[in-house]
Design a protein around this nucleic acid. Structure first.
Length: 307
DNA sequence: AAGGCGGTCAACCGCCGGGAT
DNA sequence: CATCCCGGCGGTTGACCGCCT
């Protein structure tokens, strides 16, 4: 059975908010707080759905929101956290003071995912697209594999490629850090529960090792932000300094240019690691092989995944 | 100058989980 | 235990804007 609409749509205004509506909502929330959103429109004198009011407040009117562009450090953190968490935007946004999940999601969809794609990296798996092609080919020529057991499958970083390393693992190694064991959902019934009365953090949903490693990334991020931005990111102050994020013994994202974009620098570091490990050569060979593109090519037909 | 086009982002939609009853 | 209600979340849409032809 379908859930009824949350409000009477016939008597509800939709579309962009006017300054008058913003003022009403802001005045109401500043005096009454943000209790029951379903009653807010009526009490605030707004012809809006309660959900719409909540969204407008949390994404735009809420105090301490940052409205300026994303910083280099924020970009790098988003890329890192997306590799570990996937599209859990609210968890990612929780690590970016002053940013909303909508902000992060939009920024990812419009900017970062394109940057990754332009550099030949699949924004979903964070692995080289050529590597994915290679994996597809390998799957096609491999004898049928038994399905993974439930627990290993549940704890795999990505169901599509559970056994393969993430591309940026090499970047972590090169930077003197262990890569996080990414996106391990804590779904076990016997998993330790976080402290009661505390808000869950995204790291609570990672395996212990992964949480520790990921926490290290965040600590370094916040230290870097404090050192370069002249303020605490947790306090909601903006950090627009041009410094790079310290990552192990190396610095990712600062080539001294100042205005270089952070994600690009971060990805460049990954690609540098690929060069050191010879992965780039493999990628070049794969890219040069038409069989990895053309489904009708003889080699791909031989591999069994042609059209 | 005008129309097409793509990028950006605010807002909406529907689903889900958790607390209250 | 079942149901209801609410807030939260992620995916998607559509309006707006600037650039290009």
């Amino acid at each position: 059975m379908r859930r009824p609409p949350c409000c009477d749509k016939a008597n509800v205004k939709k579309g962009p908010w006017t300054p008058e509506e913003d003022a009403k909502l802001l005045a109401f929330t500043s005096t009454h707080g943000t209790g029951n959103w379903t009653t807010v429109p009526q009490r605030a004198g707004l012809k809006r759905c309660g959900k719409s009011c909540r969204l407008r407040y949390t994404n735009y009117l809420r105090p301490n929101l940052k409205h300026e562009n994303f910083t280099q450090e924020e970009e790098e953190l988003i890329v890192t956290l997306h590799a570990m968490l996937g599209s859990r935007w609210s968890l990612i946004a929780n690590q970016l003071p002053g940013r909303t999940d909508n902000d992060v999601k939009n920024y990812w969809n419009t900017k970062l995912s394109k940057k990754l794609r332009q550099r030949g990296i699949d924004p979903i798996t964070h692995r080289p697209i050529a590597d994915l092609m290679h994996s597809i080919g390998a799957l096609a020529i491999r004898p049928p594999q038994p399905p993974p057991n439930a627990s290993s499958y549940l704890h795999a970083p990505n169901p599509a490629a559970p056994a393969l390393p993430l591309v940026h693992d090499a970047a972590f190694h090169a930077a003197g850090m262990q890569p996080p064991q990414v996106a391990i959902a804590r779904v076990d019934a016997d998993a330790p529960s976080p402290d009661h009365g505390q808000q869950l953090r995204w790291s609570d949903f990672l395996a212990d090792d992964a949480a520790a490693e990921a926490q290290q990334v965040l600590v370094q991020y916040h230290e870097g932000a404090a050192a370069t931005g002249g303020g605490s990111a947790q306090a909601g102050s903006s950090s627009t300094g041009g410094g790079g994020r310290v990552c192990g013994d190396s610095v990712i994202g600062d080539d001294g240019g100042g205005d270089d974009d952070g994600a690009a620098a971060f990805i460049d570091a990954i690609l540098d690691c690929d060069k050191e490990t010879g992965v780039d050569q493999l990628i070049a060979e794969l890219l040069a092989d038409p069989a990895y593109y053309a489904g009708s090519s003889p080699s791909s037909s031989e591999m069994g995944w042609g059209c």
